[in-house]
Nucleic acid binder design. Structure first.
Length: 887
RNA sequence: GGGCGAUUAGUUCAGAGGUAGAACGCUUCCUUGACACGGAAGAGGUCAGAAGUUCAAUUCUUCUAUCGCCCACCA
């Protein structure tokens, strides 16, 4: 694909590179999933974004994580299907189109149903792919040719089939119940679509006169307007205070209706006065009481939230207006006994935040209990795993207390319910296609149900409807059940739980996915939920344009820690963008030194120095760790591991140490072997980083000698070394310590970084340390700009007028002659001694404690002993030096 | 009412039963042949509070406080 090797500019500019490679990947068919492939399957279905949406950071995070998984699995030899698509989003889309019509002074009723739906389709064609195009900017590697929409013909017929089957199994029913009604959206909502908000309202005490007696009873209500629909007063059967009144009658104030006092267990006899007004048509509790006692249901509020003819003089008033008016009237007539402030939760529409009205109407429901039970059983048996595990409990809690699901919506945009009524004989026909005639009476004029289905009904089928169900497709056979579902916790109930229920029911008991990875919610830097209405939305596309998609992806990955929300800020992304530049420049450096190198070039073990062996050991460790981290969805840890490895080890140490060899200062054999090590380090590192930052790694990959073909078509790296050599690692740690100490002394002595230090003396207490220092002398000199290192054995004369640092096993002396600020050096030593003194005391105390010596594991004790010995020896040596300095 | 999570450096956040880490910010020095979108060195923390378990707790348990979220038919 790129016969000419790419030359890299001095700094990384993401924009042209990202567009270029995305196009190459697509045209090369990298994202295509082949159901006939012999490779093992890995599949993800995208949580379909709403067609109304434009990409927000939540989508960006969600899809970045999915993309990282898909790309990793491709490299690991899986046949990957990432199924893309969008959701028709009933209420949201209808609202958007209605708003745009309203701007032209047109209502949907002016157009009529058919024309309106036509408009929505037009809108969808025009704007519905916005979000899909935005996803591509992030690098999402979906199999775009398979893109689906929840109202595609195929998916729509899947919806009808599911509906009909559930109806025939008795798992869908129709009936007149009290449901959540949004008077603004003019539709029923499921319980989940109601958001509860704690609000301070008024608690009114209202007197009802007892019929035929002087007295009255007092009830409490937060919604006085519902008094008009009262059809009973309830008392707990064992309420000592009030049960003598059961069976008597009272008069509803304002409307003067006579209603009975009944007994019912739902009343808490301790609460308030012990009397509860019962309004079966306007309160869910009261509705149940009404059913038990066969009470009349009097509706006083209509579907617009306006008082109806049954409300008498209040007819035509808005429900809240009527509340005030009734309170005023009650007060006038002396029936208002008191008003208190009361904090209670108020239900709001999750789309428009209007106050929800419990409303009595004919609706369709899914009998959820049997479906939920199956879901719980499959999860308990371990076929579905939630990650992190804490969400399992949340899911169980909801599933185990599930209530029937109201699925009918009084909207025009959505899957129309496949039910027809025969007005002649009253027959109800539920079928996939419109029936020609009533099977009972033969009437040909049938009326289809006006309602559409809850959007989440079709989303629940997504994992199999997108793969062609109910046909037995190759796609289903290969890729269902999907491997993992990646989503936010906010839709566990809306979507995850329902996919599990429907998946099990319609896919012969096969789960829709094995793992559910629940990620954080992205909030703004103040920790607020981002939302269009709050205007605190960070637009991912702006970020991509400004920082590059890779920077944003790495930021998401790094911030994704299991079980915690992400507070995103631009500064944060800026930090991770710097990493791209670092990687870019490290690669440039490598490439400058690899001009005559070849892919597959081998090193000779005898030509490797300590730092070469060290980086190969570290590379092997990192490769192994990365493989495990990706397997366990540890995105944050994996991103940080790579960040630290590349920046803190490869760049800060290895590249610096490799410079002389690459220049040829150490001979041709060393140069060739170092090149080989460099090739190995970059080859594996770029691969390990690729799933997270695909664009920059692809560009760099192409520039290296090993970069033939697309990086993602290569294989995930294996550790280069079979065994990690611990001694190499600890030796290198020792050398790095020495270098840091010398640099530290340099800074202490205020010697500028570029100014060479003529001489440093190191006293080695062991032969081992001595030989290691000899072996690495030139590396130490290189990184400290020391011209000469004098090694001397313990007991030999120490250099005079030196800055000193004492380490385990060695003492480092930097002679500074007259520059030595004796007073300052004494202060420093004294501070060190004080610290050591403390540590020594602590250590002695510990080792003198018989409990510790008895019970602590052997290795801890010996470690403690060694530390103490080191500290004591250091203490002694520093004291000695201090003495000689002050003499 | 039930449940979950958080509390660690000035800030944003990692982390582990054995003496605390990163990034940003801050201080000092440095345009050295990959990178100033950089390098080196440094300051900065009673790991919210209390009790318990343990040889050992910042890490495990319980309680408390503060903050946040979810669920619930509180009339």
């Amino acid at each position: 694909m790129n016969p000419e090797k790419i030359t890299l500019g001095k700094s990384y500019d993401p924009v042209p590179i990202e567009d270029k490679w995305y196009e190459v990947w697509r045209s090369e068919g990298l994202f295509k999933a082949d159901p006939e492939s012999p490779k093992p399957p890995f599949s993800i279905v995208i949580p379909p974004p709403n067609v109304t949406g434009s990409l927000h950071v939540g989508h960006a995070l969600d899809n970045t994580l999915q993309d990282i998984l898909c790309r990793t699995k491709r490299m690991q030899g899986y046949e990957v299907l990432w199924m893309p698509g969008t959701d028709h989003a009933g209420i949201a889309t209808q609202n958007v189109v209605e708003r745009s019509l309203a701007a032209q002074g047109v209502s949907r009723h002016d157009l009529g149903r058919e024309a309106f739906v036509e408009k929505v389709w037009e809108w969808k064609e025009q704007y519905g792919s916005t979000i899909i195009n935005q996803l591509k900017k992030l690098g999402a590697s979906c199999d775009w040719e398979r893109e689906r929409f929840t109202m595609d013909e195929g998916l729509s017929s899947a919806v009808r089939k599911v509906f009909v089957d559930l109806y025939n199994k008795g798992l869908i029913y129709r009936g007149k119940y009290l449901i959540n009604w949004c008077p603004r959206c003019h539709t029923a909502l499921s319980d989940l679509e109601v958001e509860h908000e704690e609000k301070t309202g008024k608690f009114y005490e209202v007197a009802y006169r007892i019929v035929g007696e002087d007295g009255s009873i007092v009830v409490m209500t937060t919604r006085p307007e519902t008094i008009l629909g009262d059809t009973a007063i309830a008392v707990h059967p064992r309420d000592e205070r009030n049960r003598h009144l059961i069976g008597k009658k009272v008069i509803v104030p304002v409307v003067d209706r006579v209603i009975p006092i009944i007994e019912d267990n739902m009343v808490d006899p301790e609460f308030g006065t012990g009397f509860v007004k019962i309004t079966p048509a306007h309160d869910p509790n009261d509705f149940l009481v009404g059913q038990r006692h066969n009470l009349e249901q009097i509706q006083v509020i209509d579907d617009n939230g306006v008082m109806n003819e049954a409300a008498g003089k209040y007819q035509g008033m808005d429900r809240f207006e009527a509340r005030d008016a009734i309170v005023e009237d009650l007060e006038k007539m002396g029936a208002l006994m008191g008003v208190q402030d009361k904090v209670h939760s108020v239900g709001e529409c999750y789309r428009c935040h209007s106050v929800i009205e419990p409303y009595l109407s004919e609706q369709w429901f899914v009998r959820a209990k049997p479906l939920a039970d199956a879901g719980v059983a499959k999860t308990k048996s371990g076929e579905i795993d939630f990650v992190p595990d804490q969400w399992t409990g949340v899911y169980y809690q909801w599933m185990e207390n599930i209530r029937d699901w109201c699925i009918s919506r009084q909207l025009w945009w959505g899957h129309r319910i496949p039910a027809w009524y025969c007005d002649t004989c009253g027959e109800l026909i539920v079928a996939m296609e419109a029936p020609k005639a009533c099977p009972k009476c033969g009437e040909t004029h049938l009326r289809q149900d006006e309602d559409v289905l809850d959007t989440w009904f079709s989303s629940a089928l997504w994992p199999f409807s997108t793969m062609g169900w109910p046909e037995k497709t190759k796609l289903l056979e290969k890729f269902y059940p999907t491997s993992v579902l990646v989503t936010g916790f906010d839709i566990i109930f809306f979507w995850v739980a329902r996919m599990i229920m429907f998946g099990l029911e319609f896919m012969d008991g096969e789960v829709p996915f094995h793992d559910v990875y629940i990620h954080a919610l992205v909030r703004d830097e103040k920790g607020q939920k981002m939302s269009k209405s709050k205007g605190n939305v960070i637009d991912p596309l702006t970020i991509v344009a400004e920082y590059g998609a890779d920077a944003m992806r790495l930021t998401f990955a790094a911030l994704t820690v299991q079980g915690r929300d992400i507070f995103l800020s631009k500064e944060r992304i800026g930090t991770y963008r710097l990493f791209m530049n670092k990687l870019w420049n490290a690669s440039r450096f490598a490439l400058m030194n690899l001009e005559d190198a070849e892919a597959g070039q081998k090193w000779d073990d005898k030509d490797l120095l300590l730092h070469d062996k060290w980086i190969l050991n570290r590379l092997s460790q990192v490769t192994e760790e990365m493989t495990q981290l990706m397997d366990g969805y540890y995105f944050g840890e994996s991103a940080r591991l790579m960040y630290d490895f590349v920046w803190g080890e490869v760049c800060d140490w290895y590249l610096e140490l490799s410079k002389p060899a690459l220049r040829g200062d150490e001979g041709e054999a060393r140069r060739k072997s170092t090149q080989a090590v460099l090739l190995a380090v970059f080859e594996d590192t770029l691969k390990l980083l690729h799933p997270t930052i695909p664009f920059v790694t692809e560009e760099l990959w192409q520039a290296f000698p090993f970069g033939t073909g697309i990086i993602e078509r290569t294989s995930w790296p294996k550790p280069r070394l079979d065994n990690i050599d611990e001694k190499t690692l600890s030796d290198m740690d020792f050398v790095m310590d020495i270098i840091r100490v010398i640099r530290n002394l340099r800074a202490e002595a205020r010697i500028a970084p570029q100014q060479p230090i003529p001489r440093v003396a190191i006293m080695a207490h062991t032969a081992e340390a001595s030989s290691l220092l000899k072996e690495t002398e030139s590396q130490i000199k290189l990184l400290t700009k020391v011209e000469e290192i004098n090694l001397f054995a313990a007991g030999a004369a120490k250099p005079e007028r030196s800055l000193t640092t004492i380490l385990d096993g060695v003492e480092v002396y930097m002679p500074v002659g007259d520059l030595l600020d004796v007073e300052k050096e004494v202060q420093r030593m004294k501070a060190d001694l004080a610290k050591l003194q403390k540590d020594i005391e602590k250590g002695r105390e510990k080792l003198a404690n018989p409990q510790f010596v008895d019970r602590a594991p052997e290795e801890i004790i010996s470690k403690e002993k060694a530390t103490l010995a080191d500290n004591e020896s250091k203490f002694e040596r520093i004291s000695e030096n201090l003495k000689s300095l002050t003499e």
